[in-house]
Nucleic acid binder design. Sequence first.
DNA 1: AAGTCATTTTCTAAAAAATAGAAAATCAAA
DNA 2: TTTGATTTTCTATTTTTTAGAAAATGACTT
Lengths: 243, 243
Amino acid sequence: MKSSKHIPQLTVDCVIFGFHHKKLKLILSKLKLEKDIYALPGGFVLQEEDIEDAAKRVLFERTGIEDVYLEELGTFGRANRISDEDFQLFSHLAKELYPDVEPPINEKNQKMRLVSIAYYALVDFEKVIPKKIDLDESCDWYDSQDLPHMIFDHREMAEKGLEVLRDNLDKKLLFNNLLSETFTMRELQELYETVYDKPFPANNFQKKILDLNILERLDKKFTGAKSKAPYLYRLKSNLSNKG
Amino acid sequence: MKSSKHIPQLTVDCVIFGFHHKKLKLILSKLKLEKDIYALPGGFVLQEEDIEDAAKRVLFERTGIEDVYLEELGTFGRANRISDEDFQLFSHLAKELYPDVEPPINEKNQKMRLVSIAYYALVDFEKVIPKKIDLDESCDWYDSQDLPHMIFDHREMAEKGLEVLRDNLDKKLLFNNLLSETFTMRELQELYETVYDKPFPANNFQKKILDLNILERLDKKFTGAKSKAPYLYRLKSNLSNKG
DNA sequence: AAGTCATTTTCTAAAAAATAGAAAATCAAA
DNA sequence: TTTGATTTTCTATTTTTTAGAAAATGACTT
């Protein structure tokens, strides 16, 4: 008998953002299929598990880290969000690899509707090496501005993630989640320039951030560059803002 | 055999806002129970129905109007969001009134987990007379600042609705959805003062709104008051912003 | 050891936006 | 015509944002 410990028609998917080399990246799996098709990390929600905990579980499986900034993006549940073609490809793969998991098929052997709750997560790129699972040929970081062909409505989710990140990065002061523990003003400025896709003049950007009074200034960072060494900063310890 | 045309563990609930007498109100049903317990309008999602369409269906059943501003609030799916007590009360009522609908009970006759997608809607108070359904003893408008005891996590939904409305009313310019077709500057100002719970000086408020250039000025509204009659305004016709 | 150069950081000036204050306009009743 | 409450416009002030200028600095060159 097949196990049915998960909610049959409900899944979670995660848009996991990292910042590296002035690019906003997100984690995608390349699926074990003939065609090149990519997917966001996701999975079913267990019957006794909070939905956010399901997202945290997926996040931990794929990144190895916990205590991550995580926020819901919304529901992706269009009745026809899964095309017949995508369904065939994916369910074939799933049946092979997870014969014990209840497949999303109804009594008449038709494809069953799936509703997915999408989340976005912000992680320190340096701390994460994406891990593949059985379904994946590979799992890696991809430039959010140059996404490959994605299964189901995963591209819409990624775009919604970008939209919400732009809404919240400054308003909710989330930048520390995308940077390493300590960072220079320039690194922070480059994160803003990437997310908002516009230049921020260094003098006024610095003033704006310092006036917030949420950073502590640490030692200088000497790199050997023949120019003035910048200070390192860290978010004041009482202000961390995990999901 | 019981019908199972809906997704077994998925529902929608609607926070329907209206503005009347300087109060922000929302529609609640008083359930046919011994105790006074109230609920947001909601229902199951049909298997072939988009989730937002399910919310629109509920909205139409309860208000008789269509083409309403509607936006998702988020998922309410905590594993224990439905207390045993609330479940007993509600399922007893549902079984009596809807014997043909598949109840949220699993093979072992235990309560089944339900995940609800919450929406908020903005309607013209004057156009809506809340309609009760079989489960309801009554259905009416209630002051959002003075809510009665609500079932499940419906109070959290209502509060989330208020929070998101405050985020969006000005940013997305949603006010026309809560006012009648034409309105005075004072009425608009009072809506803002209610939602943001602070005074807006009339001179600067008027300037701010008129500078947006989204209203057309109509005739004056003569009420018989012995003071200067205010102009009526209407959102420019190309700018309506339903759902 | 002084000069150079790129960059960081601070300081000052200008422009724009938000807020406050004052006055004019107006409607119906006295 | 006057009065009083309210609406509407106009002007002044304050605050915030943006732009410009200059000072500080670290490694290298001369």
